[in-house]
Simulated assay, not measured.
Amino acid sequence: MSAAARTLRARADATSAPLPALRVRAERLAATIVLGEHGRRRAGMGEEFWQYRQAVPGDAASSIDWRRSARSDATFIRQTEWSAAQTVTLWSDAARSMAYPETGETKAERAALLALALAILLNQGGERVGHAAPDLRPATGRIQLDRLTALLGREGGGCDYGLPPAATQGTSTHVLFSDFLAPGEELFERLTHIGRQGERGVLVQILDESEEAFPFDGRTEFRSMGGAVRFETERARALRSDYRAKLEERRRRLATLARRAGWLFHVHHVQTPPRAALIWLHGALGDVR
């Protein structure tokens, strides 16, 4: 084998090595969730019986279950369970800020794990799952999961902070994983734009606990993961109160934006077991319809 071929093989091995590990972790995590038909536990078009409810003025006579109504003084409507598949587009922020912390599991790794585990659950429930930026059109099946694994296992790079894609796929539900720490107003403009298109979604803010606690003291140099922003101080502790206030204000804005758009907002720490977040996500997707 030539030197060039050996170099190419080494690069290929280094690139593909994280993918099986990510897939195995995601499948194990997904397996901890008890599954039924995901998110379909509500009345709607379908064949499976859902529930009886009392008839109200305006209900069609053809929808009345006369056999059930004969056993009571009330008139009952027989409802079937909603059975149409939903379409979910994931976005997992891979900007440099997500490569924090520099030791242990990073925010990017946790975001990828949760995104892929959620995709596995949705796929098992017959839902279509895709990815935004880079674009992967929603689909079902193992091949789609292979494609998602490759996208989510990619290395980050580029900008210091990530922004969700300005153009969306017009899907019914978006799930965005990020630290949502991009400076300026562009982040909120992007999120508002997606919300105004009438699409539903979930925001999952992933942070390291040190970003909450701000445990820094004395002389400290702060820098963005890409090195574009640097700030040095002799009294880091004096910044703690203002920093925490700004972080809390950022979180309030995200929560308010999500609420106005009919979205849900959740905060998850890298140090927290991922299963709790996955359980929340699995339930939340049934609430954003």
Results as ranks from 00 to 15, higher is better:
A139M: 13
R252E: 13
Q205G: 01
A85Y: 00
F265E: 09
Y243D: 07
L264A: 13
R53S: 05
R28P: 03
R128I: 02
T103E: 10
V88F: 06
R28L: 15
L181R: 12
G156Y: 07
F214C: 09
I33K: 03
A117S: 07
T272W: 13
T220F: 11
V270Q: 01
F188R: 07
L239T: 11
S210C: 14
G286N: 02
G226W: 08
H193S: 15
T7I: 08
G130Q: 04
I194H: 05
L281H: 04
L191F: 02
S210N: 14
T233M: 04
S92C: 14
G156R: 01
T171A: 10
L264Y: 01
R190K: 08
R67L: 14
H193M: 11
T256P: 00
I64E: 10
I120R: 14
C159A: 13
A258E: 05
V175S: 03
E127T: 02
L264Q: 10
A245T: 11
P20R: 06
I77K: 00
G227H: 12
D93V: 00
A3G: 09
D242H: 14
A261W: 02
D146M: 13
R200W: 08
T87F: 08
G226S: 12
A117H: 01
A60N: 03
D135P: 03
L285V: 05
T168L: 11
A84I: 06
A94E: 07
Y161W: 14
P274K: 03
T89D: 15
A284L: 08
C159D: 13
A21V: 12
R42Q: 11
T106D: 02
S72F: 03
R260P: 10
L35S: 12
L278W: 10
S63N: 10
A61V: 15
A4F: 09
E105S: 12
V202I: 14
T7W: 05
L239D: 09
D287C: 12
A166C: 00
P164Q: 03
L264G: 07
P18V: 05
L148D: 06
G184V: 09
V229E: 14
A55P: 02
P273F: 04
V24C: 08
T168H: 11
A117D: 09
L19P: 00
L121C: 07
E27F: 15
C159K: 15
R142Q: 13
T106N: 06
V202R: 03
R252M: 10
T192I: 04
G158V: 01
T220P: 01
F222G: 06
G156F: 00
A94V: 05
R275V: 12
F177Q: 09
H131M: 11
A26I: 08
L136V: 02
A182F: 00
E127R: 02
A132C: 07
H174A: 02
A112R: 00
G195H: 02
I279Q: 13
E48T: 12
E221N: 09
G157K: 04
H266M: 08
A55N: 02
A277M: 09
E102S: 15
T7S: 11
G158E: 11
R71P: 05
I206E: 01
L113K: 07
P215T: 06
A119Q: 13
E248W: 00
T32W: 09
P165H: 04
